[in-house]
């Protein structure tokens, strides 16, 4: 009996320590963002007018919640355009990643099994090096007097340097480069399990390799396509470093807008409102997706 009590005590300790940590450092901060998004902007430090400071206040002041910040989001086209442009840039990057990542994953899955672990490690290795370094590496390559333009000019393919940095194309290249392992790994995981005899059966029945690919391989790999697309699309929408360093001043992305609203304009309520809308737009579907997945696992 005493032992059982001790077991449940240790269980409780192990549960409540990380639980309390996550509540303090994740849940409460999110609630504070929500609260500040509902406050008025003020010229002070901290630069917002608190809606309430103690719990006793809450009841009296509920009527004073301000939706000004959210109203601003709907009125000023900057925010709408940032959202739409983030979604567009993330979507185009995801499609480019699929086109580039699929052949790589396919080649890896068909490689000699004895060298596959090493090839996989080579795919993952760049992921461990700093994100900032990988983005920085492209600035030297893409800028007008950079190596890519030097190469193209010396090959007489172009006569004038291409302006790639400070355009959306540089942002696509940066996202594709940084997120490639996230696309390749889930694709590889599904393609590796593909039963080769299915393809042999298709070719015995007279299908060309291309037809066999579209009718057999691709449908089987769809879960990997979905996982990879989700894994790169979601972080790409909130990306800040890549559009800031590689994109131009007209490259609108919501992460960049939030950053400038916060650090340059010091408008905390508007920055918080941007964060809340982005959070709801991204995190809620993901948590639902996770729940559905764990329920599916539980059903098995």
């Amino acid at each position: 009996m005493a032992e059982k009590e001790r077991t449940s005590l240790s269980r409780r300790v192990v549960t409540w320590i990380p639980y309390a940590w996550l509540v303090v450092f994740f849940l409460i901060p999110c609630l504070i963002v929500l609260k500040i998004s509902l406050s008025q902007t003020a010229l002070a430090i901290p630069p917002y007018e608190p809606v309430f400071s103690t719990f006793a206040d809450i009841r009296d002041k509920v009527g004073e919640f301000s939706l000004d910040s959210f109203a601003l989001l709907t009125q000023d086209s900057l925010y709408w355009l940032s959202y739409l442009s983030s979604l567009e840039i993330a979507a185009i990057s995801t499609i480019l990643l699929l086109i580039i990542g699929y052949p790589i994953a396919y080649g890896l899955a068909r490689a000699n099994p004895s060298i596959r672990p090493y090839l996989l490690m080579l795919i993952i290795l760049p992921f461990w090096t700093s994100f900032l370094i990988r983005v920085y590496a492209w600035i030297g390559i893409l800028k007008p007097e950079g190596l890519l333009n030097q190469l193209l000019i010396s090959l007489h393919l172009i006569s004038q340097p291409l302006a790639i940095t400070n355009t959306n194309w540089a942002v696509y290249i940066g996202i594709v480069y940084s997120y490639l392992p996230f696309m390749v790994l889930p694709l590889y995981a599904t393609l590796e399990k593909l039963d080769v005899t299915l393809l042999e059966a298709a070719s015995d029945l007279g299908a060309t390799p291309l037809k066999a690919f579209w009718q057999v391989t691709f449908p089987i790999s769809l879960p990997g396509v979905a996982a990879g697309a989700l894994l790169v699309f979601i972080p790409a929408v909130g990306e800040f470093v890549i559009p800031d360093l590689l994109g131009g001043s007209d490259t609108l992305m919501i992460g960049k807008t939030l950053w400038h609203e916060f650090f340059d304009n010091r408008d905390w309520p508007v920055a918080s409102a941007v964060a809340i809308v982005l959070l709801v737009a991204l995190v809620v579907p993901i948590v639902l997706f996770q729940n559905a997945q764990s329920r599916a696992q539980g059903a098995k």
Binding site: I28, I32, V33, P235, G255, L258, A275, I286, Q290
Partner: peptide, 18 residues
């Protein structure tokens, strides 16, 4: 799971406000 997919700008902002 949420912090893993949460954009860095939001994580940073919310922790600063805390």
């Amino acid at each position: 799971y949420a912090p893993i997919v949460m954009p860095d700008v939001i994580t940073g902002l919310s922790l600063l406000l805390l």
